[in-house]
Write a protein that binds this DNA or RNA. Structure first.
Lengths: 339, 339
DNA sequence: CTGAAAGCGCTTACAG
DNA sequence: CTGAAAGCGCTTACAG
């Protein structure tokens, strides 16, 4: 009765009940309460009931941090991505999160704005909150990052970018290879002089690799390069420049569908017909790309399946202690009517 | 010397050093090490140096979970959102995450697919991993959710939706009010018969409220309603239906810019001119909406500033123990050339 | 300026 | 089937 009062008193004082409180009220040991809580065998039904109702009465819920300290697990994975405000990363993270949840893992997201220093800083925060593994984008790292990882001995996995030159496993694309697929298509369609519009290369090895793939192709008589922020407006602006240049190219290869959409808007405004006067090739296969006028030829990067693969490997590593397997993912050419 | 060996031994065995190891190697007490670790005053420089180098030698980094158990803080906030794969939520979360990081708070994201049961389940996971507060979208909750919250006594904040009828504070929009702004604009432009294309209403009170606002407006001679998934393709399909209906409306109000884009693509294919034959009004002001042909009239919901406000209130609540203030956010009419 | 001791709220051998 | 005790790795009064 006195014990019971203790429980109620705590409740009134707005202090959370502990496992010990439950044990007292139920008249059993902490060990037994713990067993009930974790569905362990060897508890009689009678005692189980007593414990359950004590839990009910006290409105008890176990402390996650105490549990984590004992089990050594937080079931948390940290992802360092450049931004959330981008359809491709959002789609990747959406799939990743769902699959991690399926594996009983939580996802903490941290954005880096493609800045290695911010990435290290946020990595520290993620580790300080108990992340059991880290997901990063691309291969470029701040030196402090590697030191942080070796100190904390935590699994790291590179995404969006496939490489075998990194100390960390990677699940992603061979970006150079993939832009060659697009180039082959343009070449087959008879294009000889093309313009390339790409996003910022600073700290962005995915974009650099795509460009490298293009530069290695020597079949074209002329290729001009135009860097632009990944936005519709910048795509429009780049298009304006390109159609004014002498020796106007017969095709524009945009290293992002967002850029391609801007180009299409701009050409439509100038009444330049696609693909007759200028062909347009995108990269990403965003959801609207099939519906533009004309529908956009592009490259599908199955980032959703990348998310699933990453989650599955993390599950293997964290929950079954198997090493992470690197995986090179394929890009797929999607031919529609803009080329 | 023996102590020193212990440290190195652990390192070789790949076991993480603990604070006690550092204390042993440095020849000081745990208390002192803790003081150094947390930049507390009253430690002589000589000892500070000894401790620092012991930390270096052992590659020590403190256990986040042990810290959390002692301080009672995890510095983690959980967000339950319908999906990440949607420009509006992604933009909101991007701003939210950056601002939370600024306040030294981590963001765990969990997607619910607009399903209250999934939401409860994921809320449990978030609490089990130590979330100190929860962010939810809209007012609709599963009953178990409220029970979970009262049990765990954790702050909850409703976003995207402003309400004063909830037990939880809210920072969001009065969606009914905002669709009236759009309607006023269409009415002023002389439209009398309009079609409304909206997303699924199931479990989605934001959409329902927007529709309620429209239904309360009695000035129009005819309003037809068309439910569609939030996708370009569905926007196209809805547009096909609408232009075929007898008594074709003079304006289409899309409760999402994504839908509006689909409609515009479809009308462009059918050579129906915007806004002369049919005016189009959107909702969201996505990044490309200023660049469509013609540029899309729409409503700006400043979800980025919503993210900042939510983070700021959470900071006040969690770090300064002040109650969360509900806030009604304004939508802003953006008139371009599609109306 | 420094340390011994208790404690945060659980889990887990171990013993019966 | 049940419990006493130790321990996870820190922090925090308290005492000196």
């Amino acid at each position: 009765m006195l014990d019971n009062l203790m429980g109620i008193e705590k409740q009134n004082k707005n202090i959370k009940a502990t496992l010990r409180d439950v044990a007292r009220v139920a008249g059993v040991s902490s060990t037994t309460v713990s067993r009930v809580l974790n569905d362990k065998p060897n508890v009689s039904d009678a005692i189980k009931d007593k414990v359950q109702s004590a839990i009910e009465n006290l409105g008890y819920s176990p402390s996650p941090t105490a549990r984590a300290l004992n089990t050594g697990r937080t079931y948390t994975v940290g992802a360092l991505v450049p931004t959330l405000d981008n359809a491709i990363f959002a789609r990747f993270l959406d799939a990743l999160e769902k699959r991690l949840t399926f594996h009983n893992l939580n996802l903490v997201i941290s954005t880096t704005d493609e800045d290695p220093k911010t990435e290290v800083q946020n990595a520290i925060d993620l580790l300080n909150m108990g992340a059991e593994a880290l997901i990063v984008s691309g291969e470029i790292r701040h030196p402090d990052f590697d030191q942080l990882i070796s100190r904390n001995r935590i699994p790291v996995i590179i995404t969006s970018y496939f490489t075998s030159n990194s100390p960390y496993p990677s699940i992603g694309y061979n970006n150079a290879q993939i832009s060659k697929i697009a180039l082959n298509h343009l070449f087959d369609r008879g294009h000889n002089s093309i313009a390339v519009i790409h996003g910022p290369t600073k700290h962005n090895d995915r974009t650099r690799e795509r460009l490298k793939g293009i530069q290695e192709d020597k079949r074209f008589s002329s290729i001009t390069y135009h860097e632009a922020d990944i936005s519709i407006g910048s795509g429009c602006a780049a298009a304006r420049l390109i159609i004014r240049q002498k020796g106007r190219p017969s095709a524009i290869f945009c290293l992002s569908d967002v850029l391609a959409l801007g180009v299409m808007f701009e050409l439509s405004r100038k009444s330049i017909s696609i693909p007759d006067e200028i062909a347009i090739m995108g990269f990403d296969n965003l959801s609207w790309s099939a519906h533009t006028n004309p529908p956009l030829s592009t490259i599908e990067l199955s980032v959703a399946s990348m998310g699933i693969k990453v989650a599955d490997e993390l599950n293997q590593r964290l929950n079954k202690n198997k090493p992470i397997q690197s995986q090179a993912l394929e890009g797929q050419l999607i031919i529609r009517h803009s080329t």
